[in-house]
């Protein structure tokens, strides 16, 4: 089982490779990738150097060009594809059908991965991407249980990659406009969700109040850690009471499910977090490397706790266990 790790900066990239990543994924410093945050991502020259660094150490580089090209400006995304291919990317991670069509026609030998943003949640959808564009791998949306993944891998003619650690979308990825509803900026179009530029904190009735755009997302009593106001992880109210209507500020930790994911036929496991620090990347990658090595050696190791590194200090295995639904 391959270990796929994130890198938002050249420094984090090197750390990820050295800590044992089989492949590192990253993106260009623009709206073509779904982690378009200030100060993150790679220039063309930085990507060239990173690919050389990885290839010298036997690691692969997957380039995420996984936003949906803006109408009338599709050439920006075409240039990103052309450049990533020319720089020697081992695979492109794409979400947009039109862009996959471009790659299939102009770079037929380029390995193509279907991004989680493409929301290919069943064998029929995956079959479409394989038949239409020659997709070699699909990153599974975080809506499936492990048994459902096992059924899918048995039915499809491409590899699968599953997220095991980091941020957790509770909505089907690539199909969510919550962020742009509140801020005008979305993962699909601008590559950002609940962007920091639209976050404000204030105080009301002795509580720390976090807001996104014009909307209050949460309020924290004295001493309660104030989680980042990701829209779907806020506290809201209905006629049945107030609370975390969608999900708590929890993040995904499926380390304990690595054996079952492997048994389900998953080719690669993926860590989320291109926006994370070098120290975070190093700890998480090293921990997963050790767990996978133990699995390969036939040892059922207890996954080391990485709880301290996770958002809001709580974790979930998300949709992988049916009870989450």
């Amino acid at each position: 089982m391959e270990l796929i790790c994130p890198a938002g900066t050249p420094a984090a990239f090197k750390v990820a490779v050295d800590a044992g990543a089989d492949a590192v994924y990253c993106g260009f410093r623009d709206e073509t990738n779904a982690r378009n945050f200030p100060g993150l991502n790679f220039s063309r020259d930085e990507l060239r150097a990173a690919i050389t660094f990885a290839h010298e150490r036997g690691a692969k580089v997957l380039v995420a060009i996984n936003t949906f090209p803006r109408a009338g400006a599709v050439d920006v995304w075409h240039r990103a594809v052309d450049d990533a291919v020319a720089l020697g990317a081992d695979a492109l991670i794409l979400a947009d059908v039109g862009l996959m069509d471009y790659v299939a026609r102009h770079h037929p030998d380029q390995r193509l991965h279907v991004s989680v943003q493409a929301a290919a949640a069943n064998a029929d959808a995956i079959r479409f991407y394989v038949e239409a564009f020659g997709a070699r791998r699909v990153v599974l949306p975080r809506v499936l249980t492990v048994p459902e993944i096992a059924v899918i891998t048995s039915e499809i003619a491409c590899e699968t990659e599953a997220f095991v650690f980091g941020g957790l979308c509770v909505m089907a990825e690539g199909r969510c406009s919550l962020s742009s509803y509140a801020t005008g900026r979305s993962p699909n179009m601008q590559g950002v969700c609940s962007p920091p530029s639209h976050v404000t904190y204030g105080e009301a009735q002795g509580k720390v109040v976090s807001r996104l755009g014009a909307f209050t997302i949460n309020a924290f009593a004295d001493g309660e850690p104030a989680a980042y106001p990701t829209l779907c992880k806020g506290r809201f109210a209905t006629s049945h009471g107030a609370g975390y209507i969608f999900e708590e500020p929890a993040s995904l930790d499926a380390a304990t499910l690595l054996p079952s994911l492997r048994k389900a036929g998953v080719t690669a496991v993926k860590i989320e977090g291109r926006q994370r620090s070098r120290a975070y990347i190093e700890s998480v990658v090293r921990s997963f490397r050790q767990t996978i090595a133990a699995l390969d050696a036939g040892v059922v190791a207890e996954a080391a706790s990485l709880t301290a590194l996770t958002e809001g200090q709580t974790t979930t295995v998300g949709a992988y266990r049916k009870t989450w639904r």
Binding site: F68, P69, V74, V97, G98, A119, A125, R175
Partner: peptide, 26 residues
Amino acid sequence: DLSCMPALAGRRHAIGPFVNVYNEAT
């Protein structure tokens, strides 16, 4: 949802607002 696409290949159909059509190429 694009999972309908293999079965509909080449047949007339409509695309609903839940399919990501963000640009002219798609």
